[in-house]
Amino acid sequence: MSDPLCTVVIDGRPVQVSPGMSVAAAMMSTGLRAWRTTRHGQAPRGLFCGIGACFDCLVMLNGEPNVRACLVTVEPGDAITTQGGATND
């Protein structure tokens, strides 16, 4: 029996993910490894500490920037957007 999946939108692309997983896990399950760039070097960053301490995994969630993707559980319909630089305006 397969689990019911839920749909979230990652950078405009609808993706099926398992409910209950973190936003970071949802993105990694689709093959994404980085979803933010740094302010100075514009270098890509993704999940590092995995438990809310390093703030590397910041992402835009439903229009709110700088959300720690490792600490938040996906909800159906979430719009997840990669973000660049200091923050997104």
Binding site: S18, M21, S22, A25, M28, S29, G46, C49, G50, I51
Partner: peptide, 20 residues
């Protein structure tokens, strides 16, 4: 700092908490 480098505990959390 490269994507794909993770804290050991972070990798474990990802697996235990999300199955990824």
């Amino acid at each position: 700092q490269r994507p794909g480098v993770m804290a050991g505990g972070g990798a474990q959390s990802l697996i235990k908490g999300s199955g990824v």
